[in-house]
């Protein structure tokens, strides 16, 4: 008995020692800041004087500010634009290429390239692609007889421009995940269906889609979280304009905190964003029980 408890002690010692750097990081740089955000929401603080408790006043201010609603509306607009389009394209490509194809690894490398270089520099390249008159895109449209819009200076098209760029950046990554998911579906399911005389369409709806659903679910949840946090695309490409049409919630947080030093109000918006993401993810988990199937 004594030997066992000594062994347990030793296991505990090494266990806690090995996780200690990450646990300290978790406490200091995640959990403590989250708790502090919840406190800051109820204070007035400009960063120079000490924080003053003001109750719900920050909420009042934020919920009466037009910029908050612009930011919320645009963020939702981007979510509804980017998530379905990117999912559809990457799923479609994965379905078409889930077979032996010569040189597929070269194609994969090309598709993933935008994701790796998803830096400010690539946004700058798109800024040039979307440029009016001499930009690549409008020249291309001109060549096929379409007069391109002023991409970055018309509200509607500025949003479309950001959706195009974001889809372009993300589709290769999600394509690879979908493809990995498709490869995980056991061959014998299709063989059995073949024997039972099920056609390609039936196989797709009765085998592929249901068995791919955990992957689809994972992709939609991660992409949603990513798009809710959209920042640098708008910040660099359009600076939130024209007339706040591409202004996002994270840009709003950035402006409140680091341009106007309204820390309490910035904390309110960051927590609102967090709660929205939580609710959306929670709803997805609930809905997922109806359409996501796990193989045991």
């Amino acid at each position: 008995m004594q030997g066992v408890s000594k062994l347990n002690k030793r296991e505990n010692f090494w266990g806690y020692l090995f996780i200690s750097p990450q646990i300290i990081g978790l406490l200091a740089f995640v959990l403590f800041p989250v708790a502090m955000s919840f406190y800051l929401m109820f204070t007035e603080w400009d960063f120079t004087n000490s924080p003053k408790w003001i109750g719900m006043d920050n909420f009042n201010v934020i919920f009466h500010e037009e910029n908050f609603y612009y930011a919320l509306r645009n963020t939702l607009y981007f979510v509804l634009g980017i998530v379905p389009v990117t999912t559809a394209i990457s799923l479609g490509m994965a379905l078409l290429t889930n077979r032996a194809i010569k040189g597929l690894s070269i194609y994969k490398a090309a598709f993933f390239l935008p994701m790796v270089t998803s830096s400010v520099a690539i946004v700058l390249v798109w800024y040039w692609v979307f440029a009016p008159d001499i930009g690549l895109l409008n020249n291309f449209l001109d060549a096929i007889g379409i007069t391109g819009p002023n991409w970055l200076t018309e509200a509607f098209w500025a949003r479309i421009a950001i959706i195009i760029m974001s889809t372009w950046q993300g589709m290769g990554y999600y394509y690879l995940i979908f493809l990995a998911g498709l490869k995980g579906i056991p061959e014998d399911y299709y063989e059995a269906a073949e024997i039972d005389g099920a056609g390609k369409m039936r196989q797709f709806f009765n085998i592929t889609l249901p068995l791919l659903s955990p992957t689809t679910f994972f992709i939609i949840v991660t992409m949603l979280i990513g798009v809710f946090n959209l920042f640098q695309e708008s910040f660099i490409l359009t600076a939130g304009g024209p007339a706040f049409s591409t202004y996002t919630l994270v840009m709003y947080i950035y402006d409140l905190a680091f341009r106007y030093f309204r820390m309490g109000e910035a904390a309110v918006v960051s927590v609102v964003l967090f709660v929205i993401v939580l609710i959306v993810t929670f709803i997805q988990f609930k809905l997922s029980k109806r359409w996501v199937n796990y193989i045991d």
Binding site: P33, M263, S270, F274
Partner: peptide, 19 residues
């Protein structure tokens, strides 16, 4: 640990700046 994957960086941003 897994739960913290859900927390967006923006919530921790302002307190971290202060810290």
């Amino acid at each position: 640990f897994l739960a913290t994957l859900m927390i967006p960086g923006q919530v921790t941003l302002i307190p971290l700046y202060i810290l």
